[in-house]
Amino acid sequence: MSAPLPPLAYPGLPLGPSSLYTPGPGTHLSPSPSSTHIHASLAGRPILLPPSNKTSTLTPSTNNKATKPTPSPNNRGGAISVPSILPSATHARPTSKNISNKNVLPEVGSVVLARVLRVRGRGVDVGILVVYDKPIEGGPGGGKEGKDGGNAGWGEGNVCGEEWQGVIRREDVRATERDGVVCAEGFRVGDVVRGVVISLGDQSNYYLTTGKNELGVVMAKSEAGNTMVPISWREFRDPVTGATESRKVAKPF
């Protein structure tokens, strides 16, 4: 058994021996071989993620409540993590219940919401607005899955401070008949798209895919300017004019 975690961590503070814990997000290992401590690299409240879950070592928890450290005697005591918190105490941006406001970077595999900026023949340029945390199974953030219909299955959404450039290449739009995709039939400028990051991409763009049923356009406006409702896997309908437009529709929940 080791000492409990300190209530507040700041960069450089030793949190626990690496023989007992694994370093999670917001922490780092000291480079010297003599000292094998996990140090914090962010300011915040350190939490201990349960040891049984392998994926929890990779995933930051988003609630800031400290969980009881329960290191098992034989096994490793799980990952220590310092969840990042709001960038600044004076930030007065509106935050909804399941949207937090911290520094996030799109990673390979993360689910994102993006706005279509330009539709080209070879692909679609998007600006990434929201990055969802990776889903936690059994972790301290995972209990609320499915509660807020919109983000069932993945973690909490984080609004990006800046818009990150992304591109959905033509062959990544859908999983089947990838050669016959016409980008203009799947997206229009202004649509909000749910996608998954598949690569950090080139110098400026993240590469996204919408090649899954639950990925694609989640919100679209018609040519008349009305918000449309999805009616099939590839059509939206304007409830006012009754006109339908083709999209790569995300499966509604």
Binding site: P11, A43, I85, N103
Partner: peptide, 11 residues
């Protein structure tokens, strides 16, 4: 930098 939540090895 700490306030901005950028990872640092130490203060």
């Amino acid at each position: 930098v700490t306030d901005a939540g950028i990872d640092c090895v130490d203060l």
